[in-house]
């Protein structure tokens, strides 16, 4: 995702870091040491670099074009097939050689973006609707595969009421379906599913029934603002916290790899 909200600028002027940087740092913390990570595109490309450098040096990155990396790429990436991501890779080859590991259930966490998400973490990136008009979106790419097959997923989204909806109009990437034991009932692995939705306002997590609640708000964001910008009646955690600001070390890595702010300092 790229940021296009007024919050981005407010965040930057207030605190010495941008909203994009906050989200990258939050995403990086979702990666634990030693995990196999389906890295995906955009902000998560940076999050993987931060995690590898700081707290998850043994994490492994998998890319659906057919690349596996133990050592992260040495420079900024715009796509997973950029030459710096292929030189020095642990493996380069076919998509099925990477997707096979995903389908076996070996991938711990995958990152996803979408135009719409609902309270059960189902994602739509195919057919949207805006002002009563049908909108064609790019489609699944590998997102549907990752949502079905990874142990857990982390979603990055802009927080707007037309994006966080009660029920998505098209399920590109299944989350917890209609809740409860829906995933195992339709044939997906029990215990898999979305772990968090990192938005431009806060972090949503899921209870045991697969229903999302607000777990933390970003610095300077009011709870009421988050609830008002969510398309369903969002529950708020009793122990609601504030999303930790990116540390100096995290900001250092982000700015080393994205010196122009292409991903993290969008207007």
């Amino acid at each position: 995702m790229r940021l296009g909200e007024p919050q981005a600028e407010a965040c930057a002027t207030r605190s010495g870091f941008t909203l994009g940087e906050l989200m990258v740092a939050a995403a990086a913390r979702e990666i634990l040491d030693g995990e196999w990570v389906f890295v995906g595109m955009r902000l998560p490309l940076l999050a993987f670099l931060v995690a590898k450098r700081l707290h998850a040096p043994r994490a492994v990155g998998l890319y659906e074009n057919g690349v596996i990396r133990v050592d992260p790429a040495p420079e900024m990436l715009y796509t997973m097939a950029d030459p710096p991501n292929q030189r020095g890779a642990t493996y380069c080859g076919e998509m099925t050689r990477v997707m096979s590991l995903l389908q076996q259930g070996c991938v711990d966490v995958g990152f996803l973006g979408a135009a719409e998400v609902d309270r059960h973490g189902n994602l739509n990136s195919t057919w949207g609707r805006r002002d009563g008009q049908v909108v064609r979106l790019p489609g699944s790419g590998g997102a549907g595969d990752i949502a079905c097959l990874a142990k857990r997923t982390v979603v990055l989204m802009a927080h707007q009421p037309h994006r966080l909806v009660e029920r998505v109009g098209y399920v590109t990437s299944p989350g917890y379906g209609t809740g409860g034991d829906w995933r195992s009932a339709i044939g997906l692995r029990a215990g898999s599913g979305p772990a968090a939705i990192l938005t431009t306002m806060g972090v949503l997590r899921f209870d045991e029934t697969g229903d999302a609640y607000l777990a933390s708000v970003h610095p300077g964001v009011a709870v009421g603002q988050v609830v008002a910008n969510t398309g369903w009646k969002l529950r708020v955690a009793a122990d609601l916290g504030e999303t930790p600001a990116p540390s100096a070390a995290e900001l250092g890595v982000i700015r080393e790899f994205d010196p122009e702010g292409f991903w993290t300092r969008q207007p």
Binding site: Q103, T126, G144, D145, L149, V171, T172, P174, L188
Partner: peptide, 10 residues
């Protein structure tokens, strides 16, 4: 056969 796309509108 695959397990992918189960439960999706794809």
């Amino acid at each position: 056969p695959t397990r992918s796309t189960l439960g999706s509108d794809v």
